[in-house]
Amino acid sequence: MTVEDWQIVWFTAWVSALSTVIILPFGLAISWLLARRDWPGKSLIETLISLPLVMPPVATGLILLKVLGRRGPIGGFLHDHFNSDLVFTWRAVLIALGVMSFPLLVRSVRVAFEEVDPRLEQIARTLGASNWRVFCTITLPLAKRGVIAGMILAFARALGEFGATIMVAGMIPGKTETLSLAIYQNVQLGHDDYAFRLLAISVAFAFAAVWISELLLLKKGRKR
């Protein structure tokens, strides 16, 4: 592998890992609220969270472009107040990956939380535990396999993201170019050997992530 290959692989891996870490606390909070509480607008939020799973990724990317661009509400605010731009930067890649992988994380974590016996949480409360302590000492440890599986799935989804990323971050070599974008670009340029090399790396990454996730879910099933 060339230095350039390594750079693309490294950038894709760390930006995918970082996006997974950033969405984790939000994913845990939303999943817990969906699994354990009834509140007005719950089904609306559930639908909104799942939208990136069913919408064309480029459509999600276009929405992000409109929101994060200089004329958009968030991009405009950041540009006017901090002289900072998001679109066509590595931060835009991070946001695109986070938005696209968030539904997978929430689906997996929510199911894991729902499988924790609420009785155990109730008894912990009678023993004087606050909601936060119950979450940290009962709910989360008992759901940890599902949480880890969700993180791996989110990471794998981020690794393969293309449509939303290209819309909001473009394809700038050395700056916003991920594995998927590099494969696409090299096929377009007729560099098939290079594209297949990147494809092999991409498949290896995805295979490892899904395999680990399946192993964790299998162990969880056996434990039950």
Partner: peptide
Amino acid sequence: ARHRRIGYVPQDLALFPH
């Protein structure tokens, strides 16, 4: 519940398995 100081042993015992 956490401030009542009532010890409750349910039928299924609900020991924390982990």
